[in-house]
Write a protein that binds this DNA or RNA. Structure first.
Lengths: 350, 350
DNA sequence: TTGTAAGCGTTATCAG
DNA sequence: CTGATAACGCTTACAA
């Protein structure tokens, strides 16, 4: 099909030198002594023939690929593109390339991709896949395979990780609702099979408890995934209840948008009849109807830091902080407000 | 750092056979005659040692990597994740893996990534990067390197491509505005360095001409990129004009959202004072304020078809249609309406 | 049915 | 300063 690739030997022949010389010219360090004349001849030949070294052969020989893999649960969730952008930029700047894998939130695909990444001998792996089985991570740890968790941490606190401060963010979101006067606050959690899901629900419950507010089961629904559709379904379980909440915290922005969609269908005004807060501050959050009140997470920065941490590890540099926790910030927009009289009636029952 | 990887020879030793036998057991076709007993011993050894073949070595030997590369201009633009998802699904189903590269709309990065993909000996390349220089594509063509264009086609009509019907989509969008009674229709084009940008502007102009409507320069602004920010800036040039349009067609949804943001800042009601249409139908389009009227493009399907086309080509299968053009469909939501009395005054001047 | 050997394209080491 | 050689880990004729 494609014409035979030109190899280092072809270049060598064309330049009347040995292949090893070509290699030295093309990627030898400067202190190597080479006749300028040879160097020029080699470079000329290489460009004339359009020589492209084989990363395969080189990786095989070097036992290094200058490539990092990244596992993402769902590229369609707008948090991730932002994180990925950060990762890619930082990796690129340090001479690494990124192999991106979309696990579609399936354990099976995740395991399969992890295998593939290892087979490709990537130098390290970034894991943004929140559902990652503990066993999977344990395996990486056991093998001493360099990896860094992004966005969602692991149970083992000594794993390298770059995460937003879930607890602080969630707490700020719920404090905000309470300050507005809400007393019946519904929680739409993310899957409890994920660390992110667990952490955010735990944090939310803790905050409510701190304020001596109800956080009974009737006020909690767990979404099947981090998607809008799942948020919508879960919201049905909450809002169609006899005593619906006056405010809802969604474990992420997509879930919050699902709530908003349902509310709209039910004819509930937001924030008039129902306040909604999300988490992540996805792009265009301020253009939704209503503009989404949410917890801002420095997504791109998170990616940059994670990539840096991974590469530091790969290159054997000293690592000061094994776990980087990034500040989050509540961004109040239109989707939250003081509960109205109509809904405050529900408050009394709380 | 990491413990030495276990190789095929390690497995061979452990199973008391030669490496070639291990290879045969692990990926030989069924018709190969192997003693069941040997087979079992090998498999046992392989699993016990946790053997993972090196894709590097295998790719080097096979001159095939079962990997395809994909160039995406901006992963942050919500059209692409959807396309990527389709690509990845289809590729995965056929046993291929995807290496994703974000070119950030820079020629330089694009060229660099293209080089990298070739160095990794990917079996083929998917190009969704609309700004791709003709010369780049020409080079691929010359080298007979398998590639398929997605979302935006090339000038050369015989290149393999899977694209939406830009002409039909744009025309539907503008027809819609005209049917509503708009006569001063502004165009916010995408960069004219991109094929997509050119095609959509051309189509828009043609449609206006067909209706004998003005499409003078005052009604056209060209955005610097496909982003919301660029749409916003370009919109300033249009809407702050003495005689602003009563409706605007944005070359994509993000640009349209930029227009909406500006309109909101200027206190213009949408669709009351200004109608806006976009292109692509990005996720959550219906949750914006107002819900975005836009041209729906079957994004995931586009990805699936493109991947299939590429792999067919790679595997030497016969290809019936070299260019697949997908139907688009106008989705009318809240951002367009009949021009109000106030703005119809502007109509007369047109 | 299985072992032997060569080679995929590089680069590190050792001579010269 | 540059050439020869071996090895990275795998697959596939060919031989046994």
């Amino acid at each position: 099909m494609a014409a035979r690739r030109v190899t280092i030997t072809d270049v060598a022949k064309a330049a009347n030198v040995h292949a090893s010389t070509v290699s030295r010219v093309l990627n030898g360090r400067v202190e190597l002594s080479l006749l300028p004349e040879t160097r020029e001849r080699v470079i000329a030949a290489a460009t004339r023939l359009g020589y492209r070294p084989s990363a395969l052969a080189r990786g095989l020989r070097l036992r290094r690929t200058f490539t990092v893999g990244m596992l993402v649960p769902d590229i369609t969730n707008p948090v991730f593109p932002a994180i990925i952008k950060g990762v890619e930029g930082a990796a690129h700047a340090r001479g690494y390339h990124l192999i991106l894998c979309n696990t579609d939130d399936s354990f099976e695909r995740e395991a399969s991709y992890l295998r593939v990444l290892k087979e490709w001998r990537v130098d390290g792996i970034l894991i943004a896949s929140s559902s990652t089985a503990d066993s999977t991570i344990a395996e990486l740890r056991r093998e001493k395979f360099p990896f860094v968790l992004v966005n969602s941490a692991s149970r083992a606190s000594d794993d390298l990780a770059v995460v937003p401060d879930h607890r602080q963010g969630v707490s700020a979101a719920i404090d905000h609702l309470i300050e507005l006067g809400h007393r019946r606050i519904g929680l739409i959690a993310a899957p409890q099979t994920t660390m992110t899901g667990q952490e955010r629900l735990l944090a939310a419950r803790a905050t409510l408890r701190r304020h001596h507010l109800a956080h009974e089961d009737a006020l909690v629904a767990v979404a099947d995934s981090f998607s809008e559709a799942s948020g919508y379904s879960a919201a049905r379980r909450l809002l169609l209840d006899a005593e619906p909440p006056t405010a809802v915290f969604g474990a992420n922005d997509l879930i919050a948008l699902g709530v908003i969609r349902l509310a709209r269908e039910l004819g509930l005004a937001i924030p008039g009849d129902l306040s909604v807060v999300g988490f992540n501050d996805i792009p265009q959050s301020e253009l939704f109807d209503p503009p989404l009140t949410t917890v801002h997470v420095p997504k791109e920065e998170m990616g940059v830091l994670a990539a840096a941490l991974l590469i530091d590890q790969v290159e054997g540099r000293h690592i000061e902080r094994r776990r980087v926790v990034l500040e989050t910030q509540l961004v109040v927009r239109g989707s939250t407000a003081t509960p109205t009289v109509a809904t405050t009636s529900a408050m009394r029952t709380a």
